[in-house]
Each structure stands twice: as structure tokens, then as C-alpha cells.
Simulated scan of single mutants.
Amino acid sequence: MRKPLLSLVAVLGLAACATEPMLGPPPPPPSGSASISIPANIAAALSDPSRPAADMVRDQARHPGEVLAFAGVKPGAKVADLIPGGGYFTRIFSKAVGPKGKVYAYVPDELTKLANREPTVNAIARDPAYSNVTVILNKLPNFSTPEKLDLVFTAQNYHDMHDKFMGPADLSVVNRQIFKALKPGGVYLVIDHSAEPGSGLRNTEDLHRIDSAVVKSEVTAAGFIFEGESKVLRAPADPRKANVYDPSIRGKTDQFVYKFRKPASAR
């Protein structure tokens, strides 16, 4: 039996978390961060004229070129964009992997029913400019795709899967399903808003943040190897105590970018 829906305020907050841009001036570049070379396929995807102007404005804060370069997105890759929201990254993936690649915009059924509307990303999949995009609607934790993937990507949404509106989803199952969906050597990239160290899951609902140590522990427990972190979205000035939509910190949150890899020997 389905649980009662959240209050209207909570629903609107959820919709914003999944689909709305993080506003405000971008955080300063992390101190000591190395310059990252952006491959030609990713650079071309960022400058593609099919992208909405509003998405391009967001690039300065979200650093999609550096993020996709860190993930290793190549032409012909098969990618799942888990909880794609409005499709900001979906569009970039589509052009970066090219016509021989494939992008699965994976929308949990729980989120669609809660919002009571079709996923925003459906419009992208219907656009001939993004013909390699397919939307998958499926109830978590039953993550699955029609073919093995090179990359599973989720941005600012891992904490949501721990929230009550998602069940919460059993992340031990979700992460194992993602492990199965990836090719040997495939990558699982997780971006999220940082909570205070040691806070665990305490702030997933009230602040929309998660302790990065929890993510690392849960994902590696599914068999992944932690390969490293990009610090391109780090913001040391963020005290990690405010809701990510608070005007004092919105658009300037500290975010971790964690890269996990399925061992090449795994099947």
C-alpha cells in the first residue's frame, strides 16, 4: 500500500531538488585544483546550439566539462543519468556520446507519482536533436537497463534516495543493481551536497545534504572500488549547516564528486 503523499511544501521542495537550478553566484575555484583538459567530444557537447541558453548559464557553477572529463565520457559510450531532473546533464551526455552512444534517463517511478506529472526529461527524448536518449521509468530499487553501461551518473540526488518519499529506497540493493548494470571496468559517478563529517544520514531531508563517508561506504559495499575525487565543486567556505536552498548558501554549496569503478574482473 502506497504511503500518503507528503505535504504540498515538501512536494514542491522535492520537485525543486530534482529539477531546478542552484541559483546564485558560482563558488570560487577550489584552491590547488589542477586544470582539467576537456576532450573534444565534451567541448562540442557544451557548445551545441541545441542546448537551452538557461543551461549554458548554469555551466559556470556546475563545471560539466570537468565533471564529464573526470567520468571519462567517450563517443559511443552507454550512459544512465539516474534521476535526471530537467535533463541538464542528459542533453550534454547525448551530444558527448554521439550517435553511436546511448543515454538512458532513469526516472524513479516514486518521483513521477509524487510530482503527479510526466518527467520533464520526456520532452528531451521526443526531440529529434536527442534521438539517442531513452527515458526509463522504474520503481527503485529495481535499477536495470536494456544493455550494459559504461557509466551510471547521479548528481545532487543520492541523498534523495535515502528520504522517505522514495520509500526510502534500499541503497544496498540500488548500488548492487547499478554494479550489475555496468560493464566490467564501468564507472559510477556520484555528486552530492556535503553534510558535516560524521552526520551520516541526519540531514538528507532537512538540509538536502549527505555525509560523503556514507556514500563511499555504501557504494564500496556493493563491490565498487573508490577511484578518486574531483574537487572541482568543492567550496571550503560552506559551513555545511544550512539547507542547500537557503539564500545564504544556494549555488555555493560544498559538493563532492566521487568516482567509483566496477573491477575489470567482475561480471
Results as ranks from 00 to 15, higher is better:
K100D: 15
Q255M: 15
A222V: 00
L23Y: 11
P49Y: 01
P184F: 02
V232E: 07
N138S: 15
L68H: 06
P247E: 03
K241C: 12
P99Y: 02
A61P: 02
R117H: 15
Y88P: 01
M22L: 12
L149H: 02
P29F: 07
K100I: 01
N41C: 14
C17M: 12
A242G: 11
G251R: 08
P27T: 03
E205S: 14
L182H: 01
T120A: 15
G200L: 04
Y104C: 04
L8E: 15
L114I: 15
R267I: 10
S248A: 13
L5R: 15
A169G: 10
G200H: 10
D55T: 09
E20V: 13
A10N: 13
K259G: 02
R250S: 14
V79Q: 09
T134S: 09
V11Y: 00
G72I: 14
R58Q: 04
A44H: 13
P29D: 11
Y158H: 05
V107E: 10
V73N: 00
N175C: 06
D163H: 10
Y130E: 01
Y258G: 00
A54Q: 11
V215N: 09
P49K: 07
E227R: 13
A242V: 09
R2V: 15
L140N: 04
P52S: 07
P52V: 11
G87S: 07
I191H: 04
V79C: 06
V79M: 10
E147R: 06
R261K: 15
F226T: 06
E229F: 06
P29I: 01
E110N: 09
L46W: 09
I83A: 13
E205T: 11
V244K: 07
G223K: 04
I92A: 04
P4S: 14
K183Q: 11
S94C: 09
G185N: 06
S199L: 04
M22Q: 08
H162P: 05
A18S: 14
L82S: 04
I210L: 01
L140D: 05
E20F: 14
D238T: 10
P168C: 12
P119Q: 10
F70P: 00
A237D: 13
R126P: 03
Y258Q: 06
R209T: 11
F143Q: 03
G87I: 05
K183R: 13
E205Y: 11
A40F: 12
K74M: 14
S194R: 11
A264H: 11
N138W: 05
Q60I: 15
R117K: 12
P49S: 15
L171M: 14
V173E: 03
V232P: 00
D238W: 03
P197Y: 09
N243V: 09
D163P: 07
